[in-house]
Each structure stands twice: as structure tokens, then as C-alpha cells.
Design a protein around this nucleic acid. Structure first.
Lengths: 182, 182
DNA sequence: GTTCCACTACCTATCGGTAGGTAGGTAAAT
DNA sequence: ATTTACCTACCTACCGATAGGTAGTGGAAC
């Protein structure tokens, strides 16, 4: 499969942002990696903010597709939650990286406003999905969703800090355990 | 009170890192803010990595002092946990910023190695304290500690994403609620 | 008189971004 | 069928700004 240049740019940029954040990715580094000149990237994405926005939007879009799949595939609320968790586990175990929007969220203060908004959309989409498709039948779905999302993003962060992906499982399994008892 | 220049540098640098991460703070910005030349900062901290390391170490030291105080002041495990949570709530509600080491953890891949290690020490210190002084009497203190730390760091991150400090309380209160039922 | 601390002046490397050009393809007008 | 015109997707060369970092100076304090 041969990817379009724009797609290559986005993939390399996403990897760089997920490793070091918005200020750690550069047109020059991307251009080196895919074998074009940095000026050529401006043809596809006029400014860095444009590329950052495209990154966040694409990430949310792909994530949303998975969320819809999960909701369609399984009726069982507990199964849905486990599959949801798998999405995050994949980030730390397969990519060994943070969630893109988790990474960007931590730097929200220094992000171009459109990127900030796009990151917020990702989190709103996640919360809404959890409320509707996992915690709808329980008391305070909003708080439950917030707890799960916080725990997952935080578990990724702690795993990065410890350089140990098993930290993610430890935290998340404990959360699941606390749900089982209630 | 008149602070030493080194102390001023550290304070301004910490604020900048907690807003935008390691790559978003610069000697020039710091120097402008405290009214000296950027070259003068190199006298106190020879390299950026040195300053970053000093930042992380001081943050951990100050945090550790609070942890010891909490352990001494209160015998009740639940009270200790609530006071521990207050440390994190202070970050998002008073400073409106991430935890310094939470911020750095997310960028671990692109950090100078000594800074990486210092960040890891912060997390290890937190986990150990939680295990010893909060969850010692419960089954699997390690997993419990990991859950609490993940949830707190994640709740800060989600609050930054949503630009809404109440998200932190929502997630954390829900976590406390799930503990009460067990 | 040495140590401390900040200065001036400068360096190299890199940043995001711009200007102008060009090879190759497409498509409509002549 | 050929010319004219425009488009895509890159290129080279360069801009001003900023990054971290260095060498050497000089005054004040001990």
C-alpha cells in the first residue's frame, strides 16, 4: 500500500506528538523522515496549527469509529467497557505512547485555540459515549464516565513515568474490581 | 521576602513547564520574566537539563515534605487519603496547572535521562507512601495505590482538556464513593 | 584579592514560514 | 492536433526569530 504524502505527514507527526508533545514535533523532522523538503509540507498543511488540528481531528474520528463499532458489536455493558479499555491499552502496549489527545490536553495552555477545541471534542465524545453506552443504567453516569476516562488517561501517564506498561493493567484492573463489588 | 535568583528561576521555570511541558520553557522567557539576561541563568544552572532536573527534584522534595506531614498529623487512613487528594486538587484549582511530574511523565520519551529518572522517583515515592500509609491494611496495596495515583493524574489531565476544574472533583469523588462501598 | 554574580557579545543550530520556480499532468479552446 | 492555461506536488533558497550555550568582562561583597 502506498500512502499519500498528506497521510504520511500525519502519521509521522502523530507519532512525534504522542512522544514529546506539540512543541516536540517539527516540519523539518517530519520531512526528513518521509523524504521530502520541509517547505513541501506547507503545501499540504499551511501552518503548524493546521497540521496540529488535522492530527487531533483525525485521531478523534478514528476513535469514534471504534466506539461505534463497540456499541454495535456488543450489547453487554461490561463487555463494552472492557473493549473500550482495550483501545487505551493498545496505546501503551503496542505504540508505547500516550493517547494523542491526552498528550495535547496536558499542554492545553500553550496550544493554538483550534487545537485546544479539537482536544476538548475528543474528551466530550468519550464521556458522552461512556454515559450512553456503558453507564446509562447506573446512578450518576457522568461521574462514572469521568472516573473511567481519568483513570485510563492517568494510567497511561503513570506507565510512561515508570516506563512499565504493567502499571496500566494494575490500575485498570483495580478499577474494574471496584466496579464488580458495587 | 526577597528570593534568591536561583529560586526565582526555578519558580518561573516550574510554572512554564507545568503549562506547556519541557519543550515549552526557555532560558530567554525565564530571564525576561525575572529581569536578568538569559546568559546569567547558565551560571546557576549550566544546562537546560540541569535546570529540568533541579525542577523535578525540588518538586519531589516539597511533595515529600507534605506527605510526611500528612502521615504524622493524622492517624486515620481515610483522612490521610483525603489530605493526599487535596495536594492534587490544589494544583488544578489554585495553580490551574498540571502536576509538574505528571506533565513531564507524558513527555518521558524526549526528556534528558536524568530528568526521566527524577520523574520516576516522584511516582515511586507517591506509590510507596500510599501503600504504606493509606492502603497497608487492605488487600493489594500496590494496585490500590496505582489506581489512586492514576486517577488523580488523569483527573488533572481531563480537567485541563475540558478547561473545567470541577471535572477533577467529579472523578475523584466517584473514586472515593467506590472505596466507601467496599 | 578572591569569590560571587551578573553583564555584553557572540556562536551555531533550528524553528515556522515565505518567495519563486519547475516538471508533469489535465483539460478546455482553437 | 496543437496550443493555451491551469493545477498538483514538489523543489531551492532564504527570511526573521528563537533555541541553548560559551567566552570574556567587571563590579561588589567577603
Amino acid at each position: 500500500m502506498s500512502l499519500s504524502t498528506a497521510e504520511k505527514i500525519i502519521r509521522v507527526a502523530e507519532a512525534q506528538v504522542r512522544s514529546g508533545g506539540y512543541n516536540a514535533f517539527s516540519f523539518r523532522e517530519i520531512s526528513k523522515e518521509i523524504g521530502i523538503k520541509s517547505a513541501s509540507i506547507h503545501y499540504h498543511f499551511p501552518t503548524k496549527a493546521d497540521l496540529g488540528l488535522a492530527l487531533a481531528n483525525r485521531y478523534t474520528d478514528r476513535f469514534t469509529v471504534y466506539l461505534n463499532q463497540i456499541a454495535c458489536d456488543s450489547e453487554d455493558l461490561s463487555t463494552r467497557l472492557h473493549q473500550y479499555i482495550e483501545l487505551f491499552r493498545h496505546a501503551i502496549q503496542h505504540d508505547k505512547k500516550m493517547c494523542l489527545c491526552g498528550m495535547l490536553a496536558s499542554e492545553a495552555d500553550v496550544l493554538p485555540f483550534p487545537v485546544q477545541q479539537a482536544v476538548k471534542v475528543f474528551f466530550e465524545a468519550n464521556l458522552q459515549w461512556l454515559e450512553l453506552f456503558v453507564f446509562a443504567d447506573e446512578p450518576d453516569p457522568h461521574a462514572q464516565a469521568m472516573l473511567v476516562l481519568s483513570c485510563l488517561e492517568g494510567a497511561l501517564l503513570v506507565s510512561k513515568a515508570m516506563n512499565d506498561a504493567t502499571a496500566f493493567d494494575l490500575a485498570v484492573n483495580q478499577l474494574m474490581f471496584s466496579f464488580r463489588k458495587s
